[in-house]
Each structure stands twice: as structure tokens, then as C-alpha cells.
Nucleic acid binder design. Structure first.
Lengths: 250, 250
DNA sequence: GAGTGGTCTAGACCACCTG
DNA sequence: AGGTGGTCTAGACCACTCT
């Protein structure tokens, strides 16, 4: 039975649809997560219930949810149920953190918000965030540190419209990832990020906050973050003098 | 039916085994790939045939092979069959290449082998490759370039024992990834790499080959590559002055 | 004990490729 | 036309968690 139209009633009919049934099912579950039908941390109905409600077999339900589990959106708990992964969970906290110490030790930083303004987007920000010429961004700068030692200077640009409700306090220390706030205060769930790591030279602000000389070489990470629905919702430039960027492939 | 012992004959009996049947099946297929029963580029028996031979249902076969497809070892071709991915295929060629041009354009480099020696492993190489105090490595240095423009200077260290049969020609230009040679000449298939990106300063050799000043800042990528069986089989240090390192998360 | 996800089976039909 | 992988079904039983 297809999940988009109304008539077909069996597998043969479903095959007439262009997209496989399990993909339709996956997208329907995804839509409910996006729409907040099931909140982060909340449990879905059991697989059996979903079978009945959606009119598909349990194998199809499992294949659909597996996709979302792989993408870090759902979490299966044997014997308990399947729930929407909250961004605040430890699993989620380190999901997108790629910085490590120079010797390879993992990092567990605190963020300190420096500035926060709403302004017209720069050309680069418009390009990265796919905004039009009148696009506005919520621009944040912050320092991420560990044990009062400043390690990363960051500039973030968020589409102002999407993040009108963010409301962070300048000067506040933030333990969680900002992705937690995006999710809790603005309903934006980050699904995927694309990073480019390169070289840069410290400008006056970086130098001041990182305690290095102006013009000193720094590692620059440019990140674009994508929401569940594929929209680009964050452009971030991170600068660090001593940390490394670590990642595993396949 | 279990794949390791001999007696059980149905699903109930298989459940007595500690590990799920599909994992045992996956590992058995993996072992055959490692042992060269099916060569890179060669086709496996059809799913139906595997069912019969291994005494498991088609669903179990599919779950097992799916695992290997995700890890980039097998490739399904609708209507043709399932084959072992050759490292020389385009898909495989760019699988572990993370460098891009400064403006984000993809890279398609040629490698030029500079030096090749067998020597005692350094402390760092022993640590990264898990070698003992007497460990020897095959050490290679090379330049990767595009249109005669040198872009990356690389030092590679390979456990000498494993790569006795490698036999590359110093001064030769190599279009393929060296991973192709590892696989074709030494039977070593790379499954996974872990990269750490940091800052460094150009030494005399890098400066000479990259056409930059001694002491100029460069991007340094340290990579450890893992073979199918989990052994660490390559430690690589790459240095570049102008390229970026690009990667997508989840 | 009741309910959940995890594994496994034994089929069916479809979509695709090759001869 | 025949064989391959891709999708889907309708069950069964197991392992785990909670009450």
C-alpha cells in the first residue's frame, strides 16, 4: 500500500509507484520527526503498531527505520523501543566534533560567546548558505576552550529567519554543542556537515583571543551544516593554532 | 545452520551460537575475499547459489553482503551479479582521496616516485604501524602533481615484510592510487583510513619539491591505513602548501 | 509476563542485464 | 528467455527491558 496516494492495496500495486515502499515509509517517518510529531528523546510506536497504521510489513518498517538509524536520527533500544535521538546525548555531542589535541587526545571544550549580531549576509555567506541578495544572518563569534585555555576561535553565520528564536546570551558559557540549541529552540536538526580544512593567517581578533601573534599560521576549518530537510543552516569558520582535525574514512 | 561448527540444522539451533548467523556469513565471505577465492573484479556466485551452498536463507545472505557493500568491498550490479570491488575502479580511486583545490575543485593527481628504501622503522613508525623494535619498513617519498604542478609531498612507510613484493620503479609516474598496487602486487586491500590534519613548517626537501620557502607553513595530514583484517599497513605523512582537505560527516 | 526490537525463514514478484 | 539483484510479505522464535 502506497503512503502517498490512496488506492493500491498490495505489494504489486505499490510497485507501480516510482519510489520503493521502504523509501516512502522512511520519508514519511522523517517528515513526522521534522514536524515534531515525535520529539527528540521521544519514542515511536512499536514496529508492529507502525505496520498496522501504515499498512506495510514489518520488514519494510525495519528497512525504513534502519536508514534513519544509520543517519543518526533514530536510536534502537532492544526491549524498550525506538526513539528520536536527542542532540544533547553524549553520542550526539561528539558526533560532529573533529578537533583533537596535538597528541591525539580527544577534546571536550566549553564555548564562550563573544558577540552576536544580525546583519546583511556577506557574499561568501550568501553563497555558502544559498541566500538571496537581501539575506540576513545571525552572526556569532565565540571561543572554545578547555580548562580556561583558549583553543578555537569561531565565526558562525546562521540564516536570520530560521534562527529568530535562538536567543543566546553574549558572554555566557555554553557546555553543549550549539546544535543542541538549534534543535531545542528553533526545531532545526543537523544531519550532515561538510568540512574543508586549510591554512590561514591569524588576524588581530584571532591573535588576541588565541594568544598568538598576528599573521601566525592557523588551521582553518570551513563547515557547512545541513538540516534534516537538506537546507543549509550554518556556515562556520573555525581557527586553531595547536589542535588537529581528525577523521576516519569508511 | 551455523557456518563454523557442523551440527545445527535450523534457525533455532543457529541462535545457540554466540554470534548472529548473518555476521558469521559476512565473515566467511570476507575471509574468502581476503584469501582470494574471489579476486578483485570477479563475481560471487548468485545469492541463490550462496543460499544453497551455505544453507542459509536469502535474507541472511543479503544482510551479510550489504555489510560488505557498505564498507566498499562488494559492489552490487542489478541484473548482473555481485563482485569484489577492484581498487582500480573510479569509485575506488577517489574513495580515500580527500585533497581538493583551494577553491573546492576536485583533484586528479599523478604521483611521481622520488625515493624508495628499506630501513629500520623510526619510533613513530613503529608506534603507528604496531611494529616491534626490530621492525623494518619500506619507505617511499613521492610528489603528487596535476599538470606538472607539484601539489603534495608525501612520505610513506609500509611494513617491509608485507610489502616485499611491491616493486615500484623510482622515477616512475603512477596514475593509480598506490592502494591499487598494494592490492594487485601484495594482496593487501585497504578498508579504512584514519587521518589527522595539522600544521607544520616546510623542511628543505618539501620546500624544494613544492616550490615554497623553507619554514613556510604547510598543511600536514598523517594517515594510518587499515587492511581488511584490521592490520595497520601504511603510515603516511602528506604535506601541501595550497590544497585543502575536504570531508563530509554523516 | 507482556511488550519491545533482533534474527531468520521461505517464498513471491519486479526491474534489470545479457545472450 | 533466463538469470541476476531489488523489493515486499507474513509469519516464527529469540533476547532484552520493564513492571
Amino acid at each position: 500500500m502506497t503512503l502517498e496516494s490512496t488506492t493500491p492495496t498490495n505489494a504489486r500495486a505499490a510497485a507501480i509507484e516510482a519510489r520503493p515502499l521502504y523509501q516512502q515509509t522512511r520519508d514519511l517517518l522523517l517528515k513526522r520527526i521534522i514536524d515534531g510529531v515525535w520529539k527528540p528523546g521521544g519514542y515511536l510506536p512499536s514496529e508492529q503498531q507502525l505496520c498496522g497504521e501504515l499498512g506495510v510489513s514489518i520488514g519494510t518498517i525495519r528497512k525504513a527505520t534502519e536508514d534513519l538509524v544509520i543517519h543518526g536520527l533514530l536510536e534502537r533500544q532492544h526491549g524498550r523501543g525506538t526513539r528520536v535521538v536527542p542532540h544533547s546525548s553524549a553520542k550526539s555531542r561528539f558526533r560532529f566534533l573533529r578537533f583533537v589535541h596535538g597528541d591525539g587526545r580527544p577534546l571536550d571544550p566549553v564555548a564562550h560567546l563573544l558577540t552576536q549580531t544580525v546583519r546583511a549576509a556577506s557574499a561568501e555567506e550568501r553563497r555558502q548558505l544559498d541566500l538571496d541578495a537581501n539575506g540576513k544572518v545571525l552572526a556569532l563569534t565565540r571561543i572554545r576552550s578547555e580548562k580556561d585555555q583558549p583553543l578555537v576561535y569561531e565565526r558562525l553565520a546562521l540564516p536570520a529567519q530560521t534562527f529568530a528564536a535562538l536567543g543566546l546570551e553574549t558572554g555566557e558559557d555554553i557546555v553543549e554543542e550549539v546544535y543542541v540549541f538549534y534543535q531545542e529552540r528553533c526545531g532545526v536538526t543537523i544531519m550532515r556537515t561538510v568540512d574543508e580544512v586549510g591554512l590561514a593567517m591569524a588576524d588581530a581578533l584571532m591573535a588576541q583571543h588565541l594568544g598568538i601573534a598576528i599573521g601566525a599560521p592557523v588551521l582553518e576549518v570551513r563547515r557547512v551544516a545541513y538540516a534534516l530537510d537538506g537546507r543549509r543552516v550554518e556556515y562556520r569558520e573555525s581557527f586553531t593554532a595547536h589542535l588537529k582535525y581528525k577523521t576516519a574514512l569508511e
